[in-house]
């Protein structure tokens, strides 16, 4: 029964990993940018959520109403002000600039909040659980987190394939030059893609901050989890990314069950196995 329980927990946390991955995947899909600071932006939004919910005395989920617009605008400005200038045939500039950004965010958070771990308090929902027959019990919070993650991936899928904005994203991704000839401003489109990515990042950050404690140095491992989910699922496939996140979550929980020290390692090993046998991921769609 314990095993089934860990697998269920793994599936549920996989939804969160898929959210880490979805923002990464979206901007890679649109502009072939891999944002090394992605994990740090997740932690940044967790800290923003913490500050806003404690200072305004709001529930962490309500603080999203404030944090989402801040992060979305920040993403748009960051893209137009800095990242657009780095995009081109050479992969080095965007990589190194986002790496620099990662260092800046981590150390700024350290300067403001110190290295002490923080946590957001969401009240009774954190401990409430749903009892299932057979002695299984599922926490309401992980369940809600999973359902909302799936919903968000569905919404992203809808935006990408069913709306004018998504059409513009796909057209720009196909051929930037021709997209510009059709009146699409590349810089604006990329800015919007980054803003949407930041919306997802913020939701992921708040979920994370309620689920576990976090500190300024926690970003890189979130980037890595997101990256692993993307590669396991296959580039350019959002539903694949969800499966990738679930595989990662389940592997980590099974690893932890065997030996608590193996939790993260087991996730990496699952990733390496996929990379060795299915280098393009399980549900590959586009080439990197």
């Amino acid at each position: 029964m314990d095993w089934i329980n860990s697998i269920i927990q793994g599936i549920l946390v996989g939804g969160l990993y898929a959210l880490f991955a979805a923002g990464l995947s979206l901007i890679f899909g649109v502009m072939r940018l891999v944002n090394i600071a992605h994990g740090d932006l997740i932690i940044l939004s967790a800290f923003l959520g913490l500050t806003i919910s404690t200072s305004l005395n709001l529930h962490p989920f309500i603080s999203l109403i404030v944090v989402i617009p801040i992060m979305a605008i920040f993403g748009y400005v960051l893209q137009r002000g800095i990242l657009n200038k780095t995009l081109g045939n050479d992969i080095l500039p965007p990589l190194l600039v986002t790496f620099g950004l990662s260092i800046i965010i981590q150390n700024s958070l350290l300067e403001i909040y110190t290295a002490d771990p923080q946590k957001m308090n969401a009240g009774v929902i954190e401990v409430a659980s749903l009892s299932l027959p057979g002695g299984l019990s599922i926490g309401w919070y992980p369940l809600i987190m999973f359902v909302i993650s799936v919903l968000i991936i569905g919404i992203l899928q809808f935006i990408f394939y069913k709306t004018a904005l998504g059409r513009a994203f796909r057209a720009t991704s196909d051929d930037q030059e021709i997209a510009q000839l059709m009146g699409l401003s590349k810089n604006h489109i990329f800015g919007l893609a980054m803003a949407i990515s930041m919306v997802v990042v913020t939701i992921a950050g708040i979920f994370l901050g309620v689920r576990t404690s976090f500190d300024p140095a926690a970003g890189p491992s979130r980037l890595i989890f997101g990256f692993e989910a993307v590669i396991i699922g296959g580039l350019g496939n959002l539903w694949g990314t969800l499966i990738g996140g679930i595989i990662l979550g389940v592997s980590q929980n099974i690893g932890a069950k065997i030996n608590p020290g193996w939790q993260i390692l087991a996730g990496h090993i699952a990733f390496i196995i996929v990379l060795a046998f299915r280098p393009k991921g399980l549900f590959h769609r586009i080439d990197g």
Binding site: L33, V34, I36, I91, P94, L95, P220, L223, I224, F227, E228, I231, H268, F271, I272, L275, G288
Partner: peptide
């Protein structure tokens, strides 16, 4: 490219 970079990190 950049995925190679994160791969080395893993």
């Amino acid at each position: 490219g950049a995925y190679f970079a994160i791969g080395t990190w893993v």
